[in-house]
Design a protein around this nucleic acid. Sequence first.
DNA 1: TTTGGACCGAAAAACGATTTTGGTCTAACG
DNA 2: CGTTAGACCAAAATCGTTTTTCGGTCCAAA
Lengths: 204, 204
Amino acid sequence: MNEKDELVRKEILDEAQKLFRHFGWSKTTMEDIAKAAGKGKSTLYYYYKSKDEIFDEVLTREMDEVFRKLQEEVNKVQTAEDKMRTLCLTRFNILKEKANLYNVIRGDIEANIPRLRDLHRRYELREISLVRNILRFGLERKEFAQYAADDIDSIAFAMVCAFRGLEVGLLVENKFAALEGRMDLINDILMRGLKTKNSDLSKE
Amino acid sequence: MNEKDELVRKEILDEAQKLFRHFGWSKTTMEDIAKAAGKGKSTLYYYYKSKDEIFDEVLTREMDEVFRKLQEEVNKVQTAEDKMRTLCLTRFNILKEKANLYNVIRGDIEANIPRLRDLHRRYELREISLVRNILRFGLERKEFAQYAADDIDSIAFAMVCAFRGLEVGLLVENKFAALEGRMDLINDILMRGLKTKNSDLSKE
DNA sequence: TTTGGACCGAAAAACGATTTTGGTCTAACG
DNA sequence: CGTTAGACCAAAATCGTTTTTCGGTCCAAA
């Protein structure tokens, strides 16, 4: 596999990405992709095993881009609380421009399609990982109380689900404009909760 | 409208509920319902305007039952924190036996169907109301910090969404067994957050 | 009040024919 | 070796037509 090959593969993916983005999976044919890339259909199969594989790589590229950008934004702020806030607020904005990926993540697509299940899973793991890293960061800096170290994976998972639930709840009602405020709110409460040492809890 | 009428209406609803529960909306016909109720189809239309109306009343009954049970369970415990916990843990167990209602609530059903939109909305308002009441209760008892009184509605909404998000996240992965632990976790953090007075926050 | 039954139109389902599409394969060409 | 046109295949999708179903209306009879 040399540079020339990589170039061809990239060209195919670039064109496929545009088409998938515009027409979606079903309406984009291999013939379409071949034409757009200025190749023969046979060439597509020389470099890729199937339409599935092309789609998978396209979405993986998008996912990589999403997490690169998220990481950049998160790195711009200094506290774990701000990082978490940034993550929540930035996530939606970045994702909404990637229709196919967003649909996969939201689970709207029938979960029985193996290729989408895998993509969904991979995305989820990365997001949870990102949140976990922020939690760890906050623990190291003593920003968060030590009790949170007990089950950091579960907390990360739960938080990802919570934020996503809020996003869905607002979008169902077309209240996108309220997203920032609401995210701030739940994030604030969670942050307070994570910062509260056992010894700080009010006595009953 | 007299007692006799109410009896007939109830009988129709009882049978309809069974059928909808078993066969779902689409596969249950008015003829089916009529036969099951031992009535003529014309009788159904004498008492109800349409299939939609019957469905709506069936689901409303189920909703009433759900909230009655939830309120009972919540009333059994004494602190706002325990009430919230009970709500989270009990909700799924009660709802999972009401397939049609649960589907409406989860938003899996096409949001474009007016009758389902309304049902969904009504359920949502009631659940948020329930959470709001628990929050108020916690504020009155000084269980929760006063800052939470600033926007109690938004907090209630966000919490409902968060719990629901967690539920969805776990169910997608068939991790029903982890539901209780995870709900406890996020609830714990949220409760800590709600209990933390502004003056309790660590200084940076 | 109840309801069988006729009726209607729209939607859904069924059906058979046709087309499309992902994928395979091969040989020719540079 | 890389590229690819084009033949080919089976399965799936699409299409147009026909048939059936179903929610709802209506009416007259008991």
